[in-house]
């Protein structure tokens, strides 16, 4: 039924992803038809509400593993949904990335299952290692919940940037694709956060200014792949190397954000 919501091109993409994964369900609960369902459910948001503008998708590798490291914002994770949908729509051949979600998400009834079917994975180390070992695209948000929950005054200023993604990229010798998402910061500014309320294990309960996200325009920009494993000779577990590499990725993402902000003509355009 949901398939009917897809355009012919998207149906074709979903079918090509299904053909490339004949085994059906993966160990995370993902399924090619779940990707199709995710595409169908996000289509109104992607095409009509957020009118996603995507640039630089030629940097998404046609095959092999890679880490897509993006900024995270917007109170609720619509940015993750749009980025996931954008990678499926723009990659050539079509690829379904595995998007890392916070550990409380699988405990959310319905949503946790829906996200897992579409390609979301619980952000534990063994899970992400398996994604890279299997040659998939891995989407990570190194700011974590600090990014999505930052106050409006800090919009488009990257928060503390974790180093795990660069360690994995160097260990598995895969590129990091710095990615900026411009738009979600203004979609539903948080009024305040209830830090003593933990629904389903969430770190806090956000109270947004608007009950639904505003129809801001999303601009997704993929940067050139960074082959960090070629740039550093030392042990990829060395904290200094990791910190340096992570700061380079962070600076690249910040530069892409700044370019996107300079290029956009307004929050809704």
């Amino acid at each position: 039924m949901l398939r009917a919501l897809l355009s012919r091109e998207l149906r074709d993409r979903a079918d090509r992803i299904a053909d490339a994964a004949p085994d059906g369900y993966d160990c995370f609960g993902g399924h090619p038809r779940g990707v199709e369902m995710a595409l169908a459910l996000t289509r109104p948001l992607y095409d009509a509400w957020f009118r996603v503008d995507s640039q630089g998708s030629e940097h998404l590798p046609a095959h092999g593993a890679a880490v897509i490291a993006a900024n995270h914002s917007g109170t609720l994770p619509f940015d993750a949904m749009m980025l996931h949908a954008d990678v499926v729509r723009r990659s050539s051949p079509p690829r379904s990335p595995r998007t890392v979600m916070d550990r409380f998400v699988p405990a959310l009834p319905f949503y946790g299952t829906l996200v897992a079917r579409g390609g979301g994975i619980n952000g534990t180390r063994r899970n992400v290692e398996h994604v890279l070992e299997s040659g998939h695209l891995l989407v990570v948000f190194p700011e974590g919940t600090k990014g999505i929950g930052k106050p409006f005054r800090d919009r488009y200023r990257l928060q503390a940037w974790r180093v795990g993604h660069v360690e994995l990229a160097m260990r598995y010798r895969v590129p990091v694709i710095p990615t900026a998402i411009v738009g979600p910061e203004e979609q539903m500014p948080a009024l305040f956060e209830l830090h003593h309320v933990h629904p389903f294990g969430a770190p806090y309960l956000p109270i947004p200014l608007t009950p639904i996200p505003l129809p801001v325009r999303y601009h997704i920009r993929y940067g050139a792949p960074m082959a960090l494993h070629e740039d550093y000779d030392g042990d990829p577990r060395d904290p200094e190397i990791l910190q340096d590499a992570a700061l380079r990725v962070k600076a690249r993402v910040q530069a892409l954000i700044d370019e996107g902000l300079a290029a956009r003509r307004g929050v809704f355009r």
Partner: peptide, 12 residues
């Protein structure tokens, strides 16, 4: 549990 890897290896 939701805080542990979905993929269970020997060290789980």
């Amino acid at each position: 549990s939701n805080s542990l890897p979905s993929l269970i290896d020997e060290a789980h």
